[in-house]
């Protein structure tokens, strides 16, 4: 099948790539654009490891065709940090040890970013529902939820970067 030239904006940069109809956005990101931060998990939309933000909405990139993103904006986990400077969400994941094997982490970070973009002060219950589409089979959910609460608190305090150790957590 012939490849089509697609133009999109990925992590703020204009990007062009060639894509077959049968290639998913996940395949394009990983295999064509070498953005391997986005992980392949279940390929059925159940695990959320491949989460990206497409035109401002959180989606599973395994359930999007590459051709669908013509003219779209895509944000992946690579777009979070500025160079080596981690954003509060990433800092909070480290501080809370909110990762074990790490495969689910990019998806959780992107899903948490999508939540905090629309709700800067989520309750624990809201966080748990918002992250229900992301599975962690090392079962570290509590730490992940605490990390998102910490990151939200830091961001509300107007700290662009989480540089100081986070003490305790907001109830």
């Amino acid at each position: 099948m012939a490849k089509t030239r697609i133009e999109a904006t990925i992590n703020g940069e204009p990007v062009e790539f060639l894509c077959e109809p049968r290639q998913s956005l996940l395949e394009v990101l990983r295999d064509v654009l070498n953005l391997t931060g986005t992980k392949e998990g279940c390929l059925t939309g159940d695990c959320g490891a491949c989460s990206v933000i497409l035109n401002g909405r959180l989606v599973c990139s395994c359930l999007v065709l590459g051709l669908e993103v013509a003219g779209a904006t895509v944000e992946t986990v690579e777009g979070l940090a500025a160079g080596t400077e981690l954003v509060p969400l990433q800092q909070a994941f480290l501080q809370q040890a909110a990762l074990q094997c790490g495969i689910c982490t990019p998806g959780f970070l992107v899903a948490a970013k999508a939540l905090l973009d629309s709700n800067p002060n989520p309750s624990e219950t809201e966080i748990r529902y918002a992250l229900a589409g992301n599975l962690c089979r090392c079962t570290g959910y509590d730490k992940i939820v605490r990390a998102v609460m910490d990151a939200a608190a830091l961001m509300r305090q107007g700290q662009g970067r989480a540089s100081s150790p986070m003490q305790g957590r907001e109830a």
């Binding site: 989460s51 599973c60 899903a111 999508a114």
Partner: peptide, 9 residues
């Protein structure tokens, strides 16, 4: 229906 990821699509 589904998760946030599913309902957004």
């Amino acid at each position: 229906i589904g998760s946030v990821q599913i309902r957004d699509r």
